[in-house]
Simulated scan of single mutants.
Amino acid sequence: MATTTCSNGTKARFEGKNVLLTGASSGLGRSLALQLASCGVQTLLLSARKQAELEKVKAQCETLASESLDVQIVLADLSDKESVAKLAESARTANIDVLVNNGGVSSRSDFVDTSIEVDETVMQINFLSGAALAKAVVPGMIQKGQGAIIWISSVQGLLAIPSRTSYCASKHAVQGYCESMRAELASTGVTVHVASPGYIRTNLSLSAVTGDGKAYGKVDPTTAAGADPDEVAVTILDAVTKGSADFTVASGFSATVAIYLRTLCPAVLRSLLNKRYEKSKKKDD
């Protein structure tokens, strides 16, 4: 169960809303689901690929929430366009007020060792599926004059690192897409928020794909030492409530410095990234 709770302001922000949350079966998605349930949302559409895991999250949400909460499970594979289309139709029917694009996959391979099919799959899951869902729900939000898109990106969508080409490309796409979409929707009452977390204690590295599409199957030390997903979920929802449009969370000192270096001293950052890559290759050898 969630160990922290949202502020009163955040509860007021999400109370009575119809929410679609992807990647809801574990990790940050599970934590976001529990926090949204405790904030008094009206309808919570939980989507992921694993029925049994979603059922567990549903039961936990119902325990936290009032009897008026309607928790629905919609199975969807974000790598499959037809599956995403069906999820989008469910979202239209549910009259979604808040879309949380949380579902995603990471990658672990040098670009020369990565098949184009892996590039396409990662882009489909992390970016194109979310874009399709936004296109499905935003027209209804515009008609109501209110709504929110909350897209979970990554620090690596702001700062690319070696051996993450597929992942970084997909998250950079999210950043650019949302910046453009935010300007287009500024006068409609629909807000667009991009949360870029650093390392969180989830299965992201464990389920990451390698260059040939196989599972990475390891928990990176940085992930194991990452932030508590419950705390990150609270921080994200509170930041959205305060009106933050594009923000980092659990990014750590080194990531924060690197993001500033990207703008102020790019040559220094390039040198650091080169050394990081060379060090990783020596370790592999």
Results as ranks from 00 to 15, higher is better:
M1W: 09
N8E: 13
E15H: 13
G16C: 01
N18D: 09
L20R: 05
T22M: 03
A37G: 12
G40S: 00
T43M: 05
A48M: 02
K50N: 02
Q51W: 03
E53C: 00
E55F: 10
A59H: 04
A59Q: 10
C61R: 00
E62Q: 09
T63D: 11
E67N: 10
V71L: 07
Q72C: 10
V74I: 06
V74M: 05
V74S: 06
L75Y: 04
A76E: 05
D80M: 11
V84M: 01
V84H: 03
E89D: 15
A91D: 04
A91H: 02
R92G: 08
T93L: 11
T93F: 12
N95T: 11
I96W: 12
V98M: 02
S106E: 06
S107M: 08
E120W: 07
I125G: 06
L128P: 02
L128I: 14
A131P: 11
L133Y: 10
A134H: 03
A136W: 06
V138S: 03
K144V: 05
I149R: 00
I150D: 02
G157T: 02
A160M: 07
I161W: 08
Y167D: 10
Y167I: 09
A173Y: 02
M181K: 12
L185R: 12
L185N: 10
L185T: 10
S187C: 06
V190R: 14
V194L: 15
G198F: 13
G198S: 13
G198Q: 09
S205V: 15
G211M: 04
K214M: 11
Y216I: 02
Y216N: 01
D220G: 11
T222P: 05
T222A: 15
T222D: 14
G226Q: 08
G226A: 12
G226L: 09
A227M: 15
D230F: 00
D230I: 00
V232K: 01
A233K: 07
A239Q: 14
K242Y: 07
A245F: 15
T248D: 14
A258C: 03
Y260D: 04
R262N: 14
T263W: 05
V268P: 00
L269H: 02
S271R: 05
L272C: 05
K275E: 10
K275G: 07
R276F: 09
R276L: 11
Y277P: 01
K279G: 07
K281W: 08
D284Q: 13
D285R: 14
